[in-house]
Design a protein around this nucleic acid. Sequence first.
DNA 1: CTCGATCCCTGGACGC
DNA 2: TGCGTCCAGGGATCGA
Length: 301
Amino acid sequence: MPELPEVETVARGLRRTILGRRIISVALGKTDFIDDPVALEQHLPGRQIQAVDRYGKFMLLRLSAASSAGRIPTNGDALPASLLVHLGMTGQIVPSAAAKPREKHTHVCLLLDDGRELRYTDARRFGRIAYLTETPLAQELLGFGADPLEVSGEEFARRICVRRARLKALLLDQSVLRGVGNIYADESLWRVKIHPARLGAQLSKKQAGTLRRALQDILQKAIVLRGSSISDFLDAEGEPGDYQRHHRAYGREGKPCHRCKSAIRRGIVAGRSSYFCPKCQRAPRGFAALPLPKTKRKRRD
DNA sequence: CTCGATCCCTGGACGC
DNA sequence: TGCGTCCAGGGATCGA
């Protein structure tokens, strides 16, 4: 589930732990989620990790030009580059002692100049890793929408209120807003009492403003609590986040709404499970929630 | 432009 | 207990 707050948490952890380290060597496992695995092996060694940025759900490891002992780079390694990392559903990136046994599903190991290894594990391999020089990187980032934490009221309304798509689809669309996923889309819509299946064009300017502020507030609080750990999200220190305790809609099917006590319901919107309060969030005509499952008592809360 | 369907992938939950 | 099946979900892609 890494969405914006989780990715931001991981990026902050990496800034604390690996900034300034130089990459010595690269070891790869399965590579079907890597754009060009050979490029990693060829171009990463000798480069220093100078910054860790977040762009939506992507992390960007900013790398210096390569500088290994006396060798003159001839293949573009004299220029800075970036390693683009998307955690997908189950990706984790954690520095650990090189001697420590590798976890299952470890697919990328970057040996660092302090003896540690930066390890990327991803059971489902829905993540993505790409080595990109400046121009391809800029090209890559072109297609993304506004940063939800920075977006102005004007721009938010411009991106949402003119659209005929459902709000849930718009919030999840990375070309509209970068970084929002299923959890924070549902949480912000619950907060402002708007149903996920409503259309963007049905939102008034005022509602759009309310939604934007709710989304920002929720994302910021989630960052403070180091994200939501649903199944297996761990930050760069291997620690879970705490924001899942504050969820009001996501994953709470059948549980009482914190405002009105109605049972939270689930429905499919934009192809994704969406959680909402059937009373607080009035559904558009024709929208059918899924029937409540009979037997299922697992999660507390 | 927007939709749904399909695929990718594995682990965990569920049903028998 | 064990096995099969379904589902989760971000993103790409394709056809309607």
